[in-house]
Amino acid sequence: MSHAALGHSTDIRGDGTSPGAAIEVVNLVKRFGHNRALNGVSFQVPRGTVFGVIGPNGAGKTTIMRALLDIIRPTSGQATVLGTPSRNAGPDLRRRIGYLPGELVLEGRTSGRRLLQHYADISGPVTAGHVNELAERLGLDLDRPVRKLSKGNKQKLGIVQAFMHQPELLVLDEPTSGLDPLMQQEFLRMVREARNRGQTVFLSSHVISEIQQAADEVAILRDGRIVTINSVEELRTTAIRHLRLVASGIRPTDLAAILGALQGVTTLDCTLTATGDAEAVATLSGAIAPFVQAIGALQVRDLVLEEPDLEESVLKLYSAPVAAAVVTK
């Protein structure tokens, strides 16, 4: 199967879908009894991109993925995968997808190599030597019985089976669960390489740093609703930075007045140091240019401005009232 790079057209067809979308979800609802696991979820994943979904446990991430793959049927709404309605997800469509479930169950006396051969017989042709290459990158012994593998090595086996046939679409649910930090970084390299080949990656996680490193766009999910959809870079521009400023020749109250007048400066505390300087400790969200201009005339003795804290920003979005949720894609 050829996996040439695919375009990013955003033209809308007569049926409301985009020919440039690998995944399109429109007003998806899923009820389990009286519980609404999904509550009107809508989003698009352009082809050849990495799309991350992040949210706390129980937010609905796994339910979305299972609905996309027709493992469960939505109560209402529409999901289209690689141009095909998910309800029509037959063998031909499934062979174009690599799926890693969040709850991976691999048992049996067979070896990892034989198990992967079984999966290859189902998913379609695998390039000679590619399985060995992936296993070597992940430090996985394919000749050990699956039942004797640790949780982390079983996870590696699941990653190999998802990637090995170089599918058009990778659907990965909490893929780094059980992996050590070095293997997490290797996995993220594999995701970036897949995107560079033109594959699409739909990735769920509750680890914000993973999404920050891997994704082009991210949807923040809470209680079955999307709080926001944005690029990682756009999230970074609105993320929270912690700052510490020491200036001489100014009283703490005056420094507090200058900084307090700036939009985005919060949690401000100004005190007098032992050397008679004014010290300000604060948080800053949004653009830093107004802050830099405001302190330009000060006699700055020390300034520490941390990298944007995306995790803190996202956690605030988790706790934001659902009624105020906005999709900003």
Rank of each mutant, 00 (worst) to 15 (best):
D173I: 14
L255E: 02
K329S: 11
T110L: 08
N35L: 15
M164D: 05
L284F: 05
Q299E: 10
L138G: 11
D216E: 06
R95M: 06
D173L: 12
P74H: 06
V232A: 06
A120P: 08
I229P: 01
P85K: 06
I12E: 09
Y318I: 06
Q263L: 02
G20F: 04
V126L: 13
N27R: 15
V53R: 04
Q155P: 04
D302P: 00
R87L: 08
G296M: 02
Q299R: 09
P181D: 04
P308K: 11
P145D: 07
L115H: 09
R189I: 00
R144W: 00
D11V: 11
G158P: 09
S2Y: 13
L140F: 12
G16H: 05
A261M: 02
G296I: 00
S76W: 03
A239C: 07
G33T: 12
L262R: 01
L182A: 14
E168M: 03
T176A: 14
M164G: 07
L28G: 09
A194D: 06
L172K: 11
D173Y: 12
S123Y: 15
D223R: 13
G249R: 01
T84W: 01
L268V: 03
M65L: 15
I226K: 08
T266K: 09
S123G: 03
L245H: 03
T62Y: 10
P167F: 08
N39H: 13
Q185V: 10
E168A: 10
P85S: 04
